[in-house]
Amino acid sequence: MSALDFLAFSAPPMLIALLAALACALPGNFLLLRRQALLGDAISHVVLPGIVLGFLLTGGASTPAMMAGAALAALAAAALIELLQRSARLDPGVAMGATFTAMFALGVLALELSGAGAVHLDVEHALYGNLESLIWFDATDWSALITPATLATLPPELFRMAATLALLAALCWLFWRPLVILTFDEGFARSLGLPVRLLSAGIVAAATLAAVAAFAAVGSILTIAMLICPPAAARLCTHRLGPQVALSLVFAAASALIGYVLGGYGPLWLGLPASVSAAGMIATTSGLILATAALWHKR
């Protein structure tokens, strides 16, 4: 494979995977410390019906519509979980499990019935993502990198993920202090007069935003894995929050890059005919990093 092929076929999906991994790992740190790690799992399931809804209403893969649908679905799920916990007094785990499976089932049902599968979106994409197909056709020449018209033909997911990551990073930087106080000691945060409910909802909203943006590009496995594994591995390596977040980003980036390369080229090196799912390989890599951290940590 020439360097130019790399630019056209491997660089864009790799970059998208990298951005998605970073965007998920960042809010994942706070979910982990607030013992809400499984919320990441729930979110990446419930956004499916929303994305399908947005898709059906606009008849195409319109990003704003799919985002709006996903946000709506996340809100509906939050309301359902609240209802099951408050009105039916169910355990949080049960309320969450019942809700996210039902909403995921609804999403699958809508996909199968609508025939959206025939166009662009199908169950397999939702589960595995379609990372490998996010290529840059117009990169036939190195000059593509400096030609605005060609740059505009980069996969839109690239810009979407970059914008999401930039937004989340800015929010995290801006609200770092109140987030740390809230996460460590909610009672103290309240006595300081911090808007505790708003901040808590903000963390969930940030994770949802990351999950929605990543879901469309890289599928649900990668989203869940990146929300949980890199922060968990970093958590085992340090006693300080700043280094934890930084380390989680390093782990996320390493998972994305190593996983992508292993998925794309690993089977070829072994003499096997085809490549395997990059998203799956990235999730696996992040799990191996966590396993290594757990072995090293020993406690």
Binding site: L33, R35, L174, F175, W176, R177, P178, V180, I181, T183, F184, D185, G187, F188, S191, L192, R235, T238, H239, R240, L241, P243, Q244
Partner: peptide, 30 residues
């Protein structure tokens, strides 16, 4: 306000000094 026994996750990744610095939040702001 100092609660009876703070209901925090004692495993949380903060050092003693970081906890005390939290008391300066109103002064430091965002």
């Amino acid at each position: 306000y100092v609660p009876q026994r703070a209901s925090v996750d004692w495993d949380f990744p903060v050092r003693v000094i970081d906890v005390v610095v939290q008391g300066l939040y109103r002064e430091l702001g965002l």
